[in-house]
Computed example of a mutant assay.
Amino acid sequence: MASNAGGDAGEGEWLKVAQMRAVAEAQDPHAKEVDNLTLRRFLRARDHNVEKASAMFLKSLRWRKEAAPGGSVPLDMVQRDLADDKVCMGGVDRTGRPILLAFPANHLSAKRDMAHFKSFIVYALDNICARIPRGQEKFLCIVDLKGWGYSNCDIRAYIAALEIMQSYYPERLAKAMMIHVPYMFMKAWKMIYPFIDDVTRDKFVFVDDKSLQEALRQEIDESQMPDTLGGKLTPIPLKNYTRSLSA
C-alpha cells in the first residue's frame, strides 16, 4: 500500500506525488500497490513535471508485467549470465547505501542473448534495490573494467542496460565509479554516451589508478571495501547471493 513517509520532500513535492497517484490510478489500478517514495523517484526523474512523470511511471508498470511476470524474473532466463559472475554484491558505503560490483570483462559479446541479458539486468537491479535500507533510496555501483577487451565490447547490451536503469529504476543509482578503465574502452564510451540522460551522465565517475584508493576510501570504510580492492570484505557473486536468500 502507499506510504506517506520518507525523505526531505516538501509539501509541494508531496502534492505533486498525490496528483501523480490520481492520474496513475485512474489509468492502471495496479498503481495503488506502489508506494509514494517510488512515485516520488519518477517525479524527480522528470524534473517534477507531473504529466511526464505519470507517463513514465505508467509505462514502467506495463513493462514490469512483461519483464518480471509474477513479480520476479524467472531463474531460467538468467542462469547463463549468473554463471559468468558479471555482478557481485558488496558491502555498504559510508552512508549505508548497498554496493553493487560489475565486471564487464566477464561479459562476452559473442555469447550474449539479448532477451536473457535484459532479464539479467532486471534481476540484478531488483536484487540490489531490495538491499536498500529504510532511509536510503539509492545504491553505489563500482564498475571494474580490469581485463576488458574487444571480446567484451557489446555496445547494444550496454545501451540496453542503461535504458532499463534510466527508464524503470529512476533515481536508484547514486554513483557509478568506473575503475581500471583501459584506453580502448573510451572509444566504446563515446558511442554509449549519447544514450545516457543528462541526470545519469553526472553519476558516472571515471577514477584513474593513481587516485583509486583515495576515491574508494572516501566512499567506503575499509571493513566494507571489497578485498579485491584492498579492503576486508569478500564480495558475494550474485548467483551465490541468490542461493543464500533461498536457503
Results as ranks from 00 to 15, higher is better:
Ser60Gln: 06
Ser60Trp: 05
Ser60His: 14
Leu61Glu: 08
Leu61Ala: 05
Leu61Lys: 02
Leu61Ile: 11
Leu61Val: 06
Arg62Asn: 04
Arg62Ser: 10
Arg62Ala: 14
Arg62Phe: 05
Arg62Trp: 02
Arg62Met: 02
Trp63Pro: 02
Trp63Leu: 00
Trp63Lys: 03
Trp63Met: 01
Arg64Ala: 11
Arg64Leu: 07
Arg64Phe: 08
Arg64Gly: 10
Arg64Met: 06
Lys65Val: 15
Lys65Pro: 04
Lys65Trp: 13
Lys65Gln: 14
Lys65Leu: 13
Glu66Gly: 00
Glu66Met: 03
Glu66Ala: 09
Glu66Trp: 04
Ala67Leu: 03
Ala67Asn: 06
Ala67Val: 09
Ala67Met: 08
Ala67Ile: 11
Ala67Glu: 06
Ala68Lys: 15
Ala68Trp: 08
Ala68Met: 12
Pro69Gln: 00
Pro69Met: 00
Pro69Leu: 01
Gly70Pro: 09
Gly70Glu: 04
Gly70Asp: 08
Gly70Val: 09
Gly70Gln: 02
Gly71Met: 04
Gly71Asp: 14
Gly71Cys: 11
Gly71Leu: 05
Gly71Glu: 10
Gly71Val: 12
Ser72Ile: 08
Ser72Ala: 15
Ser72Tyr: 10
Val73Arg: 03
Val73Ala: 11
Val73Ile: 15
Pro74Ala: 12
Pro74Val: 12
Pro74His: 13
Leu75Met: 12
Leu75Trp: 09
Leu75Pro: 04
Leu75Arg: 13
Asp76Ala: 03
Asp76Tyr: 14
Asp76Leu: 01
Asp76Pro: 02
Asp76Lys: 00
Met77Val: 05
Met77Phe: 09
Val78Glu: 00
Val78Trp: 02
Val78Met: 01
Val78Ser: 01
Val78Cys: 01
Gln79Ala: 14
Gln79Glu: 14
Gln79Tyr: 08
Arg80Gly: 12
Arg80Ser: 12
Arg80Met: 05
Arg80Val: 06
Arg80Ile: 00
Asp81Leu: 00
Asp81Met: 01
Leu82His: 06
Leu82Phe: 05
Leu82Trp: 06
Ala83Ser: 15
Ala83Glu: 15
Asp84Ala: 13
Asp84Gly: 00
Asp84Cys: 11
Asp85Gln: 07
Asp85Lys: 04
Asp85Tyr: 08
Asp85Pro: 01
Lys86Ser: 09
Lys86Ile: 11
Lys86Val: 06
Val87Tyr: 15
Val87Ala: 07
Val87Asn: 02
Cys88Arg: 06
Cys88Tyr: 14
Cys88Ile: 02
Cys88Asp: 14
Met89Asp: 10
Met89Gln: 09
Gly90Met: 01
Gly91Glu: 05
Gly91Lys: 03
Gly91Thr: 08
Gly91Gln: 04
Val92Met: 02
Val92His: 05
Val92Asp: 00
Val92Arg: 04
Asp93Asn: 12
Asp93Pro: 07
Asp93Trp: 09
Asp93His: 08
Arg94Thr: 12
Thr95Asn: 13
Thr95Arg: 10
Thr95Trp: 07
